[in-house]
């Protein structure tokens, strides 16, 4: 089976790596501990489609009726960082919360993809933490970019897990811990719009391409996070994405 794939900065150069026994296998075959490398997102997202309110209980938590069609928003290239990196929290923010999500990476693009064939178009899966800074919410093109596309506010990784290694993307558990305490737990079976459905929907009006990423939404269980918090977003079987909150300089 194909190995999990990552990207790190090695001597300042973005370098592809694979998962090795107990760590990260470098191109020269050496294996180093995962805490000792500078992680980059496992892919450079081409276009990122994020789905809001895709879990019924989370929609309720935000006081929204579950939508009839998906709420889709886009993210800029500035926002992505890798595993074990730091996300700034501005001093004037009173509510910054994580959103742990299953991320889908498109492998083979296309237009008009049917949901029956949709998963054949997936390269693999990874984990995203789609942070939100709710103080900046405004009701224009909501959620607006100031809330959802800030610099370094979308950790992605650690690994791209080839699709062959994920039997069913709708049977995964999502768990978030903050400083070791569990704050969020849900299952991808509770998505309102599943992965295959979303691929059919998006490719129904635009062309998906290799490297496009779909962030599939977060389940119930938001919590405010503060500087120095360690936030771990885990999609069991896909990856365990660590992020540190820091005070914005």
């Amino acid at each position: 089976m194909t190995a999990r794939q990552g990207r790190i900065l090695l001597a300042g150069i973005p370098t592809p790596v694979t998962e090795g026994e107990g760590g990260v296998r470098l191109p020269d075959g050496r294996v180093v501990a995962e805490g000792e490398v500078h992680w980059l997102p496992p892919v450079v997202p081409r276009t990122t489609f994020a789905i809001g309110l895709n879990y019924a209980d989370h929609a309720k938590e935000l006081d929204f009726r579950p939508p009839d069609e998906p709420l889709v928003f886009l993210k800029g290239a500035n926002t992505f960082i890798g595993h074990r990196q730091r996300t700034p929290r501005p001093a004037d923010v009173t509510f910054m919360h994580y959103e742990s999500e299953l991320a889908v990476v498109i492998g083979t693009g296309g237009r008009g993809i049917s949901r029956e064939r949709a998963l054949d178009h997936v390269a693999g899966y990874t984990v995203a933490n789609d942070y939100a800074f709710r103080d900046y919410l405004e009701n224009y093109y909501r959620p607006n970019l100031r809330v959802k596309s800030r610099d370094r506010s979308t950790p992605l990784g650690p690994w791209l897990v080839p699709r062959e290694r994920v039997a069913d993307p709708q049977a995964l558990e999502i768990v978030t811990t903050v400083n070791g305490t569990e704050t969020q737990r849900g299952r991808t079976s509770e998505m309102i719009f599943g992965v295959a459905w979303l691929i059919e929907f998006l490719s129904g009006f635009l062309t998906l391409s290799s490297g496009d990423v779909i962030l599939t939404g977060t389940p119930h269980g938001l919590a405010n996070v503060k500087p120095d918090d360690e936030v771990v977003s885990e999609v069991v079987g896909v990856g365990r994405l660590i992020n540190y909150v820091e005070k914005e300089a």
């Binding site: 081409r46 276009t47 405004e138 009701n139 224009y140 093109y141 391409s209």
Partner: peptide, 18 residues
């Protein structure tokens, strides 16, 4: 509703690669 107030920050949308 649904806007409630005039925009404060710049209102943005993206034009993706496709």
């Amino acid at each position: 509703p649904p806007y409630q107030a005039p925009p404060r920050a710049p209102v943005l949308h993206l034009k993706p690669a496709n």
